[in-house]
């Protein structure tokens, strides 16, 4: 019973962790906007969330026996596979940070982080009112 109540909270928690991880990657890109030779990093959020929540059933090993252990556990924070951002305007010092794009991504990620927070808060309120029964 309690598992059903917290399953959605778990999903949003993973999404929140991935959002904060992406925020950090974008902050690194903005910090290195003037560093020669720096290559901008980013990751595909949808793919990372799918991987974190185990929505990709095809990946990994099939469980054919009840005694088999599942490979994907709740162990630790979800990790995203970092990739390299596509260069838009080549520059002389081989820096691939597009500051306009990074800023836009940063703001977008901020808003989405806050919306995930609101989902969590709303869910907590719902559960509390269910518990207190008022």
């Amino acid at each position: 019973m309690l598992e059903q109540m917290t399953a959605r909270l778990d999903f949003h928690g993973k999404a929140l962790m991935l959002r904060s991880q992406r925020q950090q990657v974008l902050a690194s890109n903005i910090a290195n906007a003037d560093t020669p030779g720096y290559v901008a990093r980013d990751f595909d959020f949808a793919q990372a969330l799918q991987k974190a929540t185990g929505a990709h059933a095809s990946e990994g090993v099939a469980l054919t026996d009840a005694r088999h252990l599942s490979l994907q556990g709740p162990a630790g924070a979800p990790r995203a596979d970092l990739a390299y951002a596509v260069q838009t305007q080549p520059s002389q010092d081989r820096n691939t940070v597009d500051l306009d794009r990074e800023r836009a991504n940063f703001v977008d990620n901020t808003v989405r982080y806050e919306s995930t927070l609101r989902f969590i808060n709303g869910h907590v309120k719902t559960m509390l009112s269910a518990i207190t029964g008022q």
């Binding site: 990657v25 910090a31 290195n32 560093t35």
Partner: peptide, 16 residues
Amino acid sequence: VQFQTVPMGGPGSAGV
């Protein structure tokens, strides 16, 4: 000045 990237903790986190 000459800037250089320094890794800071986890992957993808790079300072200057």
